[in-house]
């Protein structure tokens, strides 16, 4: 049976959006697998071939051994054998190769492949990926606020949306993310989720990951206990923690000692409340040492240098404090 191409009318997108908006904040794929398949497929579909496409740089032309051009990547929504999904393909190349671990697992092995084992397309079915995740003890979920921000929100596929927006800072996204991970849940709503968290999923690393997610969740929750609406100054440290935890939840960085060493110092700092969570402040600049901290967390064998880590984290705290104007009236 050939896959059937589905083209959503704007009314169908509006209906999908309304159904999505009627969900609880976190909804398991199993609760409504057909809806979840549509939402996940649509979310990935919207990102393919755009600057927000995180799959693109791992899709190679077999003959040139180079990544296919971003502009050549297209997607179609499809139905096949009662499954809803999408087809990703390149207009430049019909012999594709995937260059990150685990990505072949989430692409249908039969209908995607040419006879020589290269891929003519990537056929992706969230319902099957849900089963794969379950076999690793992980529950796939939809997150309403995330979808409202991206798939059904102000997301403009032509712009570097995730690059420029502040959504994860403003909304203390690290708290939500850590809450999901500590419960063994992962969202599947876009290319980042698929390639960074689900491809290469390995339950062997999740006991440690859930412990660290629990630490993050409790530390951030405790920090904001007295602040019903935190200032941006107070949200930078949790945001930083969230980026490190996100890395730890990615298979290439599973159980990474360097990430955990930096996370330990960040959690220690947040517990000291050096940036008071409930102080009304105006932040005048984003700390430059944030980049240094993230790079340190990604530096192998940094963990035997705790003074370097401590210095970088302290530097960021001081930068934030210096750049924060207190507004008491």
């Amino acid at each position: 049976m050939e896959p059937k191409i589905i083209r959503f009318t704007w009314e169908e997108v509006a209906l999908l959006r309304r159904r999505f908006e009627n969900l609880a904040e976190v909804t398991s794929f199993d609760a409504d697998i057909k809806l979840a398949s549509r939402v996940a497929s649509y979310g990935i579909f919207r990102e393919i071939g755009t600057v927000n496409d995180e799959l693109a740089r791992f899709i190679f032309d077999f003959e040139t051994a180079k990544p296919v051009r971003l502009e050549s990547l297209k997607a179609e929504l499809i139905e096949w054998n009662g499954l809803f999904g999408l087809r990703v393909f390149s207009t430049d190349c019909q012999r594709l190769e995937l260059r990150t671990k685990g990505l072949y697992d989430v692409v249908h092995p039969e209908i995607s492949k040419n006879e020589d084992g290269t891929l003519q397309s990537l056929y992706i079915f969230p319902e099957i990926i849900n089963k794969i995740a379950q076999s690793e003890g992980i529950e796939l979920v939809l997150v309403k606020s995330w979808g409202a921000n991206s798939i059904f929100g102000g997301f403009d596929p032509s712009k570097g949306y995730y690059q420029t927006n502040f959504w994860e800072i403003e909304n203390n996204d690290a708290l939500k993310f850590s809450n999901l991970i500590r419960q063994g849940k992962i969202a599947l709503m876009g290319t980042h989720d698929l390639v960074a968290h689900i491809a290469g999923l390995d339950k062997g690393h999740w006991p440690l990951l859930t412990v660290n997610a629990e630490r993050v969740y409790q530390a951030i929750r405790s920090y904001f206990m007295s602040a019903s609406r935190p200032s941006i100054s107070a949200l930078i440290l949790p945001y930083t923690i969230g980026v490190v935890l996100d890395d730890l939840a990615q298979p290439p960085s599973y159980s990474s000692k360097n990430h955990i060493a930096v996370l330990d110092e960040l959690l220690l700092k947040i517990s000291k409340n050096e940036i008071p969570a409930n102080l009304p402040t105006l932040l005048t600049q984003f700390p430059g040492s944030f980049e240094k901290i993230i790079k340190l967390s990604r530096t192998p064998n940094i963990e035997p240098q705790p003074t370097v880590i401590k210095a970088a984290v302290s530097e960021m705290i001081q930068e934030i404090l210096k750049a924060s104007l207190i507004k008491l009236t």
């Binding site: 995180e54 260059r99 990150t100 995730y162 980042h192 960074a196 996100d246 890395d247 600049q285 984003f286």
Partner: peptide
Amino acid sequence: SIESTWLKVPMACKARNFDASPVEL
């Protein structure tokens, strides 16, 4: 106020970024 300094932060360091490079499988 922080927008200009925020935009200087590499995309690779921000949330929702996959910290990995293509590999030979």
